[in-house]
Design a protein around this nucleic acid. Sequence first.
DNA 1: ACGATCTATGCAAACGTTTGCAATAATAAA
DNA 2: TTTATTATTGCAAACGTTTGCATAGATCGT
Lengths: 337, 337
Amino acid sequence: MQKNKLKLADLAKLAGVSTSTASRALNDSPLLKKETREHIQQLAKEHNFSLNAAASRLRAQRTKVIAVLLNLDAYTEQSVDDPFLLKVVSDINLAVNKQGYELLLSNSFMAGNDWHGYFIDGRRADGLIVVGQGKQQECIERAAAANTPLVVWGDPNIPSNYAIVGSDNFHGGKVATEHLIARGARKLLFIGDPAHPELSERYRGFLHSCNHTQQDQTISCELLKIDITSDAAYAAINARLLKQGLDFDGIFACSDMLALGAMKALKERYVSIPNDVRIVGFDDISMADISSPSLTTIAQDTRRAATLLVQKLIAQLAGESIDSEQLAIALKQRQSS
Amino acid sequence: MQKNKLKLADLAKLAGVSTSTASRALNDSPLLKKETREHIQQLAKEHNFSLNAAASRLRAQRTKVIAVLLNLDAYTEQSVDDPFLLKVVSDINLAVNKQGYELLLSNSFMAGNDWHGYFIDGRRADGLIVVGQGKQQECIERAAAANTPLVVWGDPNIPSNYAIVGSDNFHGGKVATEHLIARGARKLLFIGDPAHPELSERYRGFLHSCNHTQQDQTISCELLKIDITSDAAYAAINARLLKQGLDFDGIFACSDMLALGAMKALKERYVSIPNDVRIVGFDDISMADISSPSLTTIAQDTRRAATLLVQKLIAQLAGESIDSEQLAIALKQRQSS
DNA sequence: ACGATCTATGCAAACGTTTGCAATAATAAA
DNA sequence: TTTATTATTGCAAACGTTTGCATAGATCGT
């Protein structure tokens, strides 16, 4: 706990070089002779020296920080509780660190409406990863229009002036629904809220499968529009069973949490899964495997998504122009279907 | 997208004042006349002006950033996916923002061993919230010894030279176990890993209840030491049932995820919950309520914990000395017991 | 052996704020 | 009126890096 923190100049003096040289050494500049560089780095280690990031950022006009913005309409004042979303953040965290960047975790509460001003002009971060397109995309579009280095986790099929990385939600919806039908379901329910871009694509896939599957029997499909919380799913299925009885035999839930909520309601009313009702979720959160019956679901490759998001953002920071990219999904069949 | 970003001097010129005045206006300095202040703030809004945080931090020697450090032995190279931990982070995020600070999400991978050097000397953050005490506390202790503003989420009963906020794990363990016994369990199993400080306290509570409960029959208790993942719990209970049959009638799992894993194994072997085996978890993650049977658990007040962590840290930044604080836990009885 | 090219380092000027101190204008006290 | 006090504002010096340019040896081709 030395009282006087070392500054670069002090370290330089210790090494008998100029501050320029010291600076270059710590930044691995190829201008320096290998010995000089290593000697200074060694010295820095010994003295527990660390650069003043504020000064460095000011001078270099570069922060080496990536901001992750949770863009969730509903949760403005509320803490996030969706395990899938948090997994995405966690994976992004890892990917960001691997590239030598730090992660500023933010949200609309802090950033306000002018994301470019807050993050970029404000020199808080070099670029932005937006998690979730949200119901209205104005803020993202404005930021993109202002040339903010920016990548979005969302549905790559949505037309946009910014790059999006995300799963093939339409295909995921299709696959899930085809699977339900293949497993014998004929009266299908979609639960979720298609107002969200990604969920809307899943719903499109659902409809597509319902309408295009060749079967001897006709397939009926229905949208049960609910808030995307497990509680809402539980309540909705519960109410449905009470009012109309069991008039469906397959559920495609737009997220695992919804599926689990629905399953709880079904089990409480002694509806057999998967015999009476087959059910498929989306996301493949860890609970999908632990629940019983375990939950068939559409897995998203968040690990790879995170890597891509960060790679693309960094490419954009380097001046390259980047494109959206779609990730393949995978059906994980388990006991619920 | 103005090409030339405004700097404070420009804004000042626009307002017809000096940069000093402009600076004070944006920082709500009481030195300024109210009109002046508001006029400049107004102007700043109009022009989407935002201060350069790097410059500000350099000059003021203050970052207005709080770093949150996920201190997890196991997860060094791996992304976190414990829903409870992520909920804690999310609650901290909220609390941090409410106090006007930003949140730097970090981990041992970035910070290395010299936390004081990295965060404080490096001017990346003003203070540190460490989530999880980890199996070995050297890093925390060293940082605390270096006078790092620092608060830890952990068990407040652990002796330490730093302030800890956390639940009363011992009492939680006691209450959970007493409840199991009250519900008729006699042969109790604790699953988890007491090597972690918090879990060790829960285990102590477990033992205490087993040994001090007045009952006609004697209570047996046993530690089943496993990794703290739901998979491990599933595997362990599964193996146990195969090898020794059902030789227990109550489980206290040191986390909900473990409890859910255990429940899955029990259900697969047609052990009735709660008739044959009562089970209690810890944390009260959202899945506890959704699972079926729903899971009795010890709820931790993460919302309040987050608020306290941030408050204490900020108090410490202001020079006050702060103490550890223990939060009450609450038994949530559900169907599993 | 001599200019030309290259390598390795130092000098000094930014980067854009905040803030102690001085200065001036306005008000109160005498 | 004069002086002491207070309320506002401006001046200019930091904060600690990075980096374009200059410089001085070292190397090389002829």
